[in-house]
């Protein structure tokens, strides 16, 4: 396998890891505050549809992105109401959101566009297009660095760069700010936060809100950057993979980056069965490659990869006790 092929695979790794990373960080904010969220999948899907629809109608991808975030936020509010205000079961609420999104997106898409539950193809300004970083062409001929810069680092959509920046930003918020300290505390022991005179409900809604924004960006990326338009069930389990990555990352931002890159890499491999065959010199069943990320998910969730301790108050509504 030559250098350029490797770069191509890594390039698609980055593209495929981006929605996973955004969803994973979304889950990180929510779960660090003690709200388990298996509704990442549904929120991404809803965001993908709304961003695709609005981008098509308006022809402006940025409006699409905003609409996607709005859709995801709406579902976040439902999750917040169910699990924070009404102290319901967070898993049930998450499952309900996933079903809701899976059903509603197709029904509405059919009613609006009548194309079998998809949005029309997005073109031009209705999509996020690759951004050419400065000097990409000028550096291309420098050995090693040139191709890495031009092929791997340059030429992604703006959302990929936003996602990359979100990692240090998340770390900084969590560990360097007052908000982060309180957010982590509310996921570990909400009673400590409450008796310190800080609103548990407020913090948890803030976390769920951030989760909604990030999921919205992830969903919009699927429909307006990775692909050109919304298709039925296009999130394809990415929300669940992001959750697995979150556990793998032990709820830490930098590890979330590494974990989602690993999953992205496996997904990228599945797109190039020809390459696998050349390297291993025997044919690997394409479907086997497709399930690799999911197998890794099962392995991680079964706890084979070290012990992951979730935030202690995770999944439990806060009820005042003496």
């Amino acid at each position: 396998m030559d250098f350029l092929t490797l770069l191509q695979i890594l390039d698609s790794t980055v593209r495929l890891a981006t929605p996973l990373l955004l969803a994973c960080l979304a889950g990180l904010f929510s779960e660090r505050a003690g709200i388990f969220d298996i509704g990442l999948e549904g929120k991404m899907l809803a965001a993908a549809f709304m961003s695709g629809a609005v981008a098509y109608v308006s022809g402006n991808v940025w409006l699409g992105l905003l609409a996607g975030i709005g859709a995801s936020m709406a579902l976040s509010v439902i999750h917040g109401l169910a699990s924070i205000t009404f102290k319901g079961n967070q898993l049930i609420s998450g499952v309900a959101i996933n079903f809701l999104a899976a059903g509603l997106t197709v029904v509405i898409a059919q009613s609006w566009f009548a194309q079998g539950g998809r949005t029309p193809q997005l073109t031009g300004g209705a999509r996020f297009n690759p951004v050419e970083l400065p000097f990409a062409e000028a550096f291309r001929d420098i050995p090693i660095f040139g191709p890495i810069y031009a092929e791997l680092i340059s030429g992604h959509t703006i959302i990929v760069y936003i996602a990359a920046l979100t990692v240090p930003l998340t770390w900084w918020i969590l560990y360097r700010t007052r908000f982060g300290l309180r957010l982590r505390a509310v996921g570990e022991n909400p009673a400590a936060v409450d008796t310190a005179g800080v609103s548990v409900v407020g913090l948890r809604y803030a976390a769920v809100g951030i989760c909604g924004i990030l999921c919205g960006i992830a969903g919009a990326y699927l429909a307006t950057a990775l692909q050109a338009g919304f298709v039925k069930d296009m999130s394809a389990g990415r929300g669940y993979i992001a959750l697995a990555a979150l556990i793998f990352a032990k709820w830490r931002p930098w590890y979330a980056l590494y974990a989602t890159l690993l999953f992205g890499f496996l997904q990228a491999l599945a797109l190039r069965p020809d390459l696998i065959e050349r390297v291993l010199s025997f044919k690997v069943n394409g479907q086997l490659l497709d399930v690799l990320p999911y197998i890794l998910t099962v392995i991680i969730l079964a706890g084979f990869v070290g012990k992951a301790i979730p935030p202690r108050a995770g999944g439990e509504p806060y009820v005042k006790e003496r």
Binding site: Y175, R176, T177, R178, E188
Partner: peptide
């Protein structure tokens, strides 16, 4: 309280500061 209201995996210092921080930066 009878059952302490402390965050187990925070340091002593972080627990003392929690909720009584001076500014947005830690």
């Amino acid at each position: 309280f009878q059952h302490f209201k402390l965050v187990e995996n925070f340091t002593v210092l972080e627990n003392v500061v929690l909720g009584a921080e001076d500014s947005a930066m830690l």
